[in-house]
Design a protein around this nucleic acid. Structure first.
Length: 112
DNA sequence: CGATATATACGTCACGAGCG
DNA sequence: CGCTCGTGACGTATATATCG
Protein backbone atom coordinates (compact mmCIF):
# COMPACT_ATOMS: atom_id res chain seq x y z
CA UNK A 1 0.00 0.00 0.00
CA UNK A 2 2.66 2.50 1.05
CA UNK A 3 4.98 1.40 -1.71
CA UNK A 4 2.39 2.03 -4.41
CA UNK A 5 1.52 5.44 -3.03
CA UNK A 6 5.12 6.53 -2.74
CA UNK A 7 6.00 5.34 -6.22
CA UNK A 8 3.11 7.33 -7.60
CA UNK A 9 4.08 10.53 -5.82
CA UNK A 10 7.70 10.08 -6.89
CA UNK A 11 6.54 9.79 -10.48
CA UNK A 12 4.42 12.88 -10.39
CA UNK A 13 7.14 14.94 -8.76
CA UNK A 14 9.66 13.70 -11.28
CA UNK A 15 7.57 14.73 -14.24
CA UNK A 16 6.47 17.91 -12.54
CA UNK A 17 2.79 17.63 -13.42
CA UNK A 18 0.06 17.48 -10.81
CA UNK A 19 -2.80 14.98 -10.74
CA UNK A 20 -6.09 16.61 -11.68
CA UNK A 21 -7.63 16.01 -8.27
CA UNK A 22 -5.06 18.38 -6.79
CA UNK A 23 -7.04 21.37 -8.04
CA UNK A 24 -8.83 22.83 -5.05
CA UNK A 25 -11.99 24.81 -4.61
CA UNK A 26 -12.33 27.38 -1.84
CA UNK A 27 -14.50 26.11 0.99
CA UNK A 28 -16.19 27.65 3.98
CA UNK A 29 -17.09 26.40 7.43
CA UNK A 30 -20.78 26.87 6.76
CA UNK A 31 -22.34 23.93 4.95
CA UNK A 32 -23.54 24.60 1.45
CA UNK A 33 -27.12 24.21 0.30
CA UNK A 34 -28.72 25.70 3.40
CA UNK A 35 -31.53 28.06 2.51
CA UNK A 36 -31.78 31.09 4.76
CA UNK A 37 -35.16 32.61 5.51
CA UNK A 38 -35.67 36.05 7.03
CA UNK A 39 -38.86 35.15 8.86
CA UNK A 40 -38.40 34.81 12.67
CA UNK A 41 -40.06 31.41 12.76
CA UNK A 42 -37.56 29.94 10.33
CA UNK A 43 -34.61 31.72 11.88
CA UNK A 44 -34.85 29.54 14.97
CA UNK A 45 -34.89 26.47 12.78
CA UNK A 46 -31.95 27.74 10.82
CA UNK A 47 -30.00 28.36 14.01
CA UNK A 48 -30.59 24.77 15.05
CA UNK A 49 -29.48 23.49 11.67
CA UNK A 50 -26.42 25.71 11.80
CA UNK A 51 -25.54 24.55 15.31
CA UNK A 52 -25.91 20.93 14.29
CA UNK A 53 -23.71 21.52 11.26
CA UNK A 54 -21.08 23.20 13.44
CA UNK A 55 -21.19 20.34 15.92
CA UNK A 56 -20.79 17.77 13.16
CA UNK A 57 -17.91 19.74 11.68
CA UNK A 58 -16.12 19.93 15.02
CA UNK A 59 -16.51 16.20 15.51
CA UNK A 60 -15.20 15.54 12.04
CA UNK A 61 -12.22 17.86 12.56
CA UNK A 62 -11.38 16.19 15.85
CA UNK A 63 -11.57 12.73 14.31
CA UNK A 64 -9.52 13.78 11.31
CA UNK A 65 -6.90 15.38 13.57
CA UNK A 66 -6.50 12.10 15.40
CA UNK A 67 -6.53 10.12 12.15
CA UNK A 68 -3.78 12.33 10.72
CA UNK A 69 -1.67 11.83 13.84
CA UNK A 70 -2.15 8.07 13.62
CA UNK A 71 -1.39 8.08 9.91
CA UNK A 72 1.90 9.95 10.46
CA UNK A 73 2.87 7.64 13.26
CA UNK A 74 2.20 4.64 11.06
CA UNK A 75 4.22 6.15 8.21
CA UNK A 76 7.17 6.88 10.51
CA UNK A 77 7.15 3.29 11.74
CA UNK A 78 7.01 2.05 8.18
CA UNK A 79 10.00 4.18 7.18
CA UNK A 80 11.92 3.02 10.26
CA UNK A 81 11.14 -0.55 9.29
CA UNK A 82 12.43 0.03 5.76
CA UNK A 83 15.62 1.65 7.06
CA UNK A 84 16.15 -1.31 9.30
CA UNK A 85 15.74 -3.65 6.34
CA UNK A 86 18.26 -1.63 4.36
CA UNK A 87 20.78 -1.99 7.20
CA UNK A 88 20.22 -5.76 7.38
CA UNK A 89 20.58 -6.17 3.61
CA UNK A 90 23.73 -4.06 3.55
CA UNK A 91 25.25 -6.27 6.22
CA UNK A 92 24.25 -9.40 4.34
CA UNK A 93 25.77 -7.97 1.19
CA UNK A 94 29.01 -7.19 2.97
CA UNK A 95 29.19 -10.70 4.41
CA UNK A 96 28.53 -12.28 1.03
CA UNK A 97 31.22 -10.17 -0.65
CA UNK A 98 33.72 -11.26 2.02
CA UNK A 99 32.70 -14.86 1.57
CA UNK A 100 33.09 -14.65 -2.19
CA UNK A 101 36.51 -13.09 -1.77
CA UNK A 102 37.61 -15.89 0.56
CA UNK A 103 36.37 -18.56 -1.82
CA UNK A 104 38.16 -16.90 -4.73
CA UNK A 105 41.40 -16.84 -2.76
CA UNK A 106 40.97 -20.48 -1.86
CA UNK A 107 40.35 -21.39 -5.50
CA UNK A 108 43.40 -19.45 -6.71
CA UNK A 109 45.75 -21.15 -4.29
CA UNK A 110 44.34 -24.55 -5.17
CA UNK A 111 44.99 -24.09 -8.88
CA UNK A 112 48.54 -22.87 -8.40
C1' DC B 1 24.08 37.49 17.72
C1' DG B 2 20.44 38.28 14.37
C1' DA B 3 18.88 36.88 9.69
C1' DT B 4 17.94 33.24 6.76
C1' DA B 5 17.50 28.39 5.39
C1' DT B 6 16.09 23.79 6.44
C1' DA B 7 13.71 20.22 9.18
C1' DT B 8 9.86 18.64 11.76
C1' DA B 9 5.19 18.44 13.56
C1' DC B 10 0.65 19.71 13.20
C1' DG B 11 -4.22 20.89 11.56
C1' DT B 12 -7.04 21.19 7.69
C1' DC B 13 -9.02 20.18 3.14
C1' DA B 14 -10.01 17.31 -0.79
C1' DC B 15 -10.34 13.02 -2.54
C1' DG B 16 -10.83 7.95 -3.32
C1' DA B 17 -11.91 3.41 -1.35
C1' DG B 18 -14.85 0.56 0.91
C1' DC B 19 -18.78 -0.60 3.75
C1' DG B 20 -23.75 -1.01 5.04
C1' DC C 1 -25.88 6.19 -2.50
C1' DG C 2 -24.43 8.37 1.66
C1' DC C 3 -21.10 7.97 5.23
C1' DT C 4 -16.64 7.14 7.41
C1' DC C 5 -11.76 6.45 7.19
C1' DG C 6 -7.03 6.78 5.45
C1' DT C 7 -3.92 9.57 3.23
C1' DG C 8 -1.62 13.12 -0.07
C1' DA C 9 -1.05 18.02 -0.38
C1' DC C 10 -0.87 22.46 1.50
C1' DG C 11 -0.09 26.20 4.86
C1' DT C 12 1.58 27.44 9.35
C1' DA C 13 4.26 27.29 13.68
C1' DT C 14 8.27 25.94 16.11
C1' DA C 15 13.00 24.06 16.48
C1' DT C 16 17.57 23.63 14.75
C1' DA C 17 21.49 24.64 11.66
C1' DT C 18 24.22 27.80 8.90
C1' DC C 19 26.24 32.06 7.63
C1' DG C 20 27.80 36.89 7.59
Amino acid sequence: QWILVMKESAMTSATGDMPSYQIRTPSSAVPQGVVVSTSPANQHGFQQVAEEATRKREIRLLKNREAARECRKKKKEYVKCLENRVAVLENQNKTLIEELKALKDLYCHKTE
